[in-house]
Amino acid sequence: MNERELRAGAVVVFGGVVFEVAYAIAGTPPGPIPLLAGLSAVATTTAAVLRKRAVVLGWITAVLLAADFGGAVADRFGVLGAPGTSGVTWGDWQTFTTYTGTLVPWLAQPFVAPLAVVATITETVLCAWLVSGVARRWAGRASAAVLAVFCVAMLTTVGGAAVAKNAVPVLAGGALVLASIPARIPAKRRHATGAR
């Protein structure tokens, strides 16, 4: 395990939990997929810190992070329902593009739509990458970086409630912890376990 990423991820996850609890008490709980992914990130972080079953929980966290990215992409194409439907953030491409412009108010209008496309491609790639398990440490690092960018952009424009609703700090920390965990049990440990 990469101790530096594990420690940094644990600090972000548990700090994010405090952030989430404060907003939940104030009436802004996270949505269902961010909640599940966040709980998985907490479980994975705890397991990694305690050195227990982190590999298995890491897979669960990777799949739930992928579901969060994939769900966000599906939402912007109306797969989860039309704009205004309960549980739907955007519901169509135009609403998502407008929201993207809200997150980057300093960006000239002609560049907002291309940025929305780049964000969509990035999240689609991260979704597939996390599920594939290929170079999962790098997938975790990339996911943490993207989520950190989202967190900063959201905090500075739409506020903490939107960040809390999407459990962004917990997911970013969980992705960083994921980067510290091997995708499979090391061969040395497998053989020792099988010998018992």
Rank of each mutant, 00 (worst) to 15 (best):
A108P: 11
V146M: 08
D92R: 02
G84W: 09
G70L: 07
I33Y: 00
V56C: 04
F77L: 12
T61K: 12
G78T: 10
V131H: 06
V12R: 00
G31R: 05
A113P: 07
T156G: 09
V112N: 03
G78E: 10
L65D: 00
A187E: 10
L80H: 11
R196S: 13
T46Q: 06
A195M: 08
T85Q: 14
V55M: 04
V117M: 03
S132I: 14
T102N: 07
A179I: 12
V18R: 02
L103K: 01
L171F: 02
D75M: 09
T100R: 04
W90H: 15
A8D: 05
R53P: 04
A82S: 15
A145E: 05
V146A: 05
P182C: 08
K165Y: 06
V104L: 11
T61N: 04
A116C: 11
S180I: 05
P29T: 01
L130I: 08
R196T: 12
L178R: 06
D68V: 08
T44L: 12
W106C: 01
E3A: 08
S143N: 03
I181E: 05
G173K: 00
G31C: 06
A145T: 11
A161E: 07
P83V: 04
V158S: 11
A74V: 09
K165I: 07
M1P: 14
I121L: 15
G160F: 13
A175K: 00
G58F: 03
V79S: 09
V63R: 06
A192Q: 14
T98Q: 10
A142G: 03
T85D: 07
T102I: 11
A161D: 09
L50A: 10
A162P: 06
V125P: 04
A66W: 00
A66S: 11
W106T: 08
R190L: 06
G159T: 12
I60C: 07
G27C: 09
G81K: 13
